Simulated scan of single mutants.
Amino acid sequence: MALTQMQIIQSLGEAMNWFERELQWGVKPTELPHLCGRIGELYAAMITNGQMATSVNQHGYDVVSAQGERISVKTTAKMKHTAYVSFNPRTLSQVDRVIVLRVNTEEMQIEILLDAVIEKAMSMMGPEAKGQRLLPLRPFLNILKPRRAQETVNIVPYHGYTIRELESGTIAIERDGQSISPVKPILRSLALSLNLSLVNSNGNPLNTRQLGSQVIQSVKAIIERVPVAPQPVTPGSTFPI
């Protein structure tokens, strides 16, 4: 039975919530390959306005787009540049398009590493070995780093750090002009120094964006409460009316 686009979006949200809950319980993201794969397939179906394949690994593809493209979807939660995804060379002839996704567990968002026609994707894979062709992720992870310049919507200085909230909701932290990553350990430390809770009303740990927003708003409130010292008046000075 085909899912509606609304059902796909709802299922994706539920899968992401469950994935985040497992991480909060201490499960490593690499120990959740089935859930990670499900998230990727739902996301690919959503962005292509398509449908899930009717059978698991049906002829090597996972999603059929609105244009009828057979899409092989690979999803990883690995952050290291030595990571790779593998393909079965015997079923690549049944694929029209390849989408490779990463679930960024730092910001709990899905990143598109590759979206290409099968011919281009195959040109990036290594030769067949042990019944697989490997696609290294290093080139795509390198591209992710210099993201498009985003507007800063909130910025505060605190304890030697500069904390920014970007227009996408991403939290960035700098110290002495150098970007710091990952940011969540710093945010947790700053939150504790501000006597802020690290969990939400349901007792679940705040994610990076929620924690960063909370820290920024708390620091802004402190800054606004600090009175500005009056400036000395020089004899003969004039003031605009």
Rank of each mutant, 00 (worst) to 15 (best):
M1W: 13
M1S: 15
A2M: 13
A2F: 14
Q7L: 03
I9W: 00
I9G: 02
L12E: 04
E14S: 06
A15D: 08
A15S: 10
E20D: 15
E20V: 14
E22M: 12
Q24Y: 14
G26W: 07
V27I: 12
E31S: 07
H34V: 07
L35A: 05
C36I: 10
G37Q: 09
G37D: 10
G37V: 08
R38G: 07
G40V: 08
L42V: 08
A44G: 10
A45F: 08
A45I: 08
I47Q: 03
I47L: 10
T54W: 13
V64L: 05
S65G: 12
Q67V: 00
R70C: 04
I71S: 04
T75V: 02
T75D: 04
T76F: 03
T76D: 02
A77F: 04
K78W: 04
K80A: 02
H81T: 04
V85N: 02
S86A: 09
S86W: 00
F87W: 06
R90I: 09
V95H: 02
D96P: 06
R97L: 03
R97C: 00
V98H: 01
V100I: 02
L101N: 01
V103E: 01
N104W: 01
M108D: 07
Q109G: 04
E111D: 08
L113K: 04
I118D: 00
K120H: 10
A121S: 01
M122S: 02
S123N: 07
S123G: 01
E128G: 03
A129S: 02
A129H: 05
R133S: 02
F140W: 10
L141I: 11
L144C: 09
L144P: 05
L144H: 11
P146M: 11
P146A: 14
A149T: 15
A149D: 15
A149F: 12
Q150S: 14
E151L: 15
E151T: 15
V153P: 06
N154M: 15
P157A: 15
Y158H: 13
G160L: 07
G160K: 05
R164Q: 15
R164N: 13
E165N: 13
G169N: 05
G169K: 01
G169Y: 04
T170M: 13
A172K: 09
E174G: 08
E174H: 14
R175K: 12
D176Q: 14
G177V: 10
Q178W: 15
S181M: 12
L187C: 02
L187F: 09
S189D: 15
L190K: 00
L192S: 13
S193Q: 14
L194Y: 07
N195Y: 08
L196G: 03
L196F: 07
S197I: 04
N204P: 00
P205Y: 09
P205M: 05
R209A: 07
R209Q: 14
G212E: 03
V215K: 02
S218D: 01
V219G: 00
I222G: 00
E224W: 09
E224Y: 09
P227L: 10
V228A: 09
P230F: 10
T234D: 11
P235W: 01
I241M: 13
